[in-house]
Design a protein around this nucleic acid. Structure first.
Lengths: 138, 138
DNA sequence: TATTGTTATACTCTATAACTATA
DNA sequence: TATAGTTATAGAGTATAACAATA
């Protein structure tokens, strides 16, 4: 696979590896890191998070149990619907999320650091097109 | 993250998701699919595979136990070193590997199908540069 | 002593199915 | 009945540490 397909797999592996290494550096699992990053944009419901992660509700229960035990996030009741829970970051979780995000962002920037401004622009545009055309699923 | 970093994460997520879906279609886990693809290029030792996967030897024992139980690969002795084992694909494993590989290749090609020939060339070149500059680790 | 691979143990992540409580 | 979330159970993947056999 020495073509686009191979390139995509290798590039994706590079990004995945980078993400995992940075997670470890912050004493997080990659999934926990992803959870923190999502919650950085605001509180979310359990079902909402399950949908976002393309995972069953039950998996989120476990994920949140561990995140809560580690003091990164918490579940709070939703006024008006006594079945529902909202997930928010704790202070520690917010600090961890910000630190992780900053770090991973810098490393990803460094990853494309060898591109010329021109090449970088083309690359960004191509990624944008692929992502847009594929949306969520594809 | 609406920049290169965000694009890389989303693109990598797209590729990862595609890989996982195709694996499932072939009744494989993503890790098993990766193992089959590596073995398609020839037999490998256990330690060699562990290195390739950036994983401890013990993890590979478990991985191979399951692959062997499913009839996809087998361990054979190495003449000349009675400690070592070589991992090879079974016939069924070879069939599964080829079918998976073909399928994933086609899907990845389709992923970049919206790019113009020009854009595609630029994209390929940029990926090549990034990968080359980062080699294995980076 | 170093290397190859395994075993034992524990943890994370995930799926499925059955369940509770509320809407 | 439908939705939100949990519990129970099982399996994959991984790490660590201790081990056996061979080099």
């Amino acid at each position: 696979m020495n073509d686009v397909a191979g390139g995509l797999v290798r590039l994706s592996g590079l990004v995945q590896g980078l993400y995992t290494r940075v997670s470890q550096r912050h004493d997080l699992t990659p999934v926990q890191a992803k959870l923190l990053c999502v919650l950085l944009e605001g509180p979310r419901g359990m079902a909402e998070l399950a949908g976002y992660f393309s995972v069953e509700k039950a998996a989120l229960t476990g994920l949140m149990d561990r995140a809560e035990k580690r003091g990164l996030a918490r579940r709070t009741p939703v006024p008006g619907d006594r079945r529902a829970l909202t997930v928010t970051l704790t202070e520690e979780g917010h600090r961890a999320a910000t630190a992780f995000y900053t770090d991973v962002h810098a490393e990803l920037e460094a990853l494309v650091g060898s591109l010329t401004p021109e090449g970088r622009k083309h690359f960004e545009q191509a990624m944008g097109e692929i992502i847009e055309r594929c949306g969520g699923g594809c």
